[in-house]
């Protein structure tokens, strides 16, 4: 007996309803956060864009809200990110290469990997405390850009290592064997075959990790970034401030005018983040295109 395709009044009626409900819930799960984000960004834009002009970007902070600018924080953030990337990327990629290519099957490597995965989940303020003790005090870096960058580098290292390792793992075994069969040493095969293949993946992970560092506030406060800086950093050993710190400082003031400054500061932070990300994605795509 063949069953009719239109059979089942009860099932036929309930299944689409349950399915429609599930679909609606999933849609809500997409729309609600998006909506909140749009409202937040919209609110910031409405409050901040009016305050945003060239003078705001090129001025030093001031006790008078109308004269205050964001230059030291912007420059501080850019220096911080550059230093963080310079410190975190070679160490992170190096660690990933070791774990994936050399320490492959050892118990120690597995233990290390497990710990790195856990470290990625540690709250950033803890890294701040570590940075304060280790870099600021023990290593005598003081409350400098370098100490801040080292702390942020520690914070992003687990993500850089994990994503680089993942990228290295996707390089097909056949390509490594191809290199060995031509008489390449382990290092030559990594350098010429594996790394170029893994580069786009490594860059993606690094971009995500470093963008996380741009917005970090807590560890910088703990390490001792200053809120009120009327000079630009001269060297990695200079005291510094950063965009989130400046914004945090303005938000905590009672005057309405400073809140407007904070909103404008957030816009600057978002634009900086988006610019750096798109540059990085552009570089990555150029590498990726070579693979096709």
């Amino acid at each position: 007996m063949a069953t009719s395709l239109t059979d089942g009044r009860s099932r036929g009626a309930t299944r689409p309803r349950a399915e429609r409900l599930f679909r609606a819930l999933c849609l809500a799960a997409v729309i609600i956060p998006l909506l909140i984000l749009v409202i937040l960004v919209g609110d910031v834009l409405v409050r901040g864009v009016g305050r945003l002009d060239w003078a705001f970007i090129t001025s030093l902070p001031s006790r008078k809200a109308a004269l205050a600018g964001i230059l030291p924080a912007l420059v501080g953030s850019l220096y911080l990110i550059a230093l963080t990337a310079i410190i975190a990327v070679p160490i992170g990629v190096g660690a990933a290469i070791y774990l994936e290519e050399y320490g492959h099957d050892s118990r120690a490597a597995r233990l290390i990997e497990l710990n790195i995965a856990n470290l990625a989940g540690v709250p950033s303020v803890i890294y701040g405390l570590l940075g304060l003790e280790l870099f600021v005090r023990t290593l005598g870096m003081g409350r400098s850009l370098l100490a801040g960058a080292c702390t942020l580098a520690l914070l992003v290292l687990p993500i850089v290592i994990l994503s680089s390792r993942e990228a290295l793992r996707t390089v097909p075994k056949g390509l490594r064997e191809g290199a060995y069969a031509l008489g390449a040493t382990h290092w030559q095969s990594i350098r010429r075959v594996v790394l170029p293949m893994a580069l786009p993946g490594i860059l993606t992970g690094t971009i995500l990790a470093v963008s996380r560092a741009i917005g970090e506030t807590a560890p910088l406060i703990v390490v001792g970034a200053l809120a009120y800086v009327t000079f630009l950093p001269q060297s990695p050993m200079s005291p510094f401030t950063a965009l989130p710190i400046q914004i945090f400082n303005w938000v905590s003031r009672p005057q309405e005018a400073f809140l407007t400054n904070a909103a404008a500061g957030i816009v600057v932070l978002l634009v900086t983040l988006l610019t750096l990300n798109s540059v990085a994605v552009g570089i990555r795509n150029r590498f990726q295109r070579r693979l096709r």
């Binding site: 056949g174 191809g178 290199a179 075959v193 293949m197 693979l291």
Partner: peptide
């Protein structure tokens, strides 16, 4: 077995 030219 599988041709494996270097993609880069």
């Amino acid at each position: 077995q599988k041709p494996n030219p270097f993609p880069t």
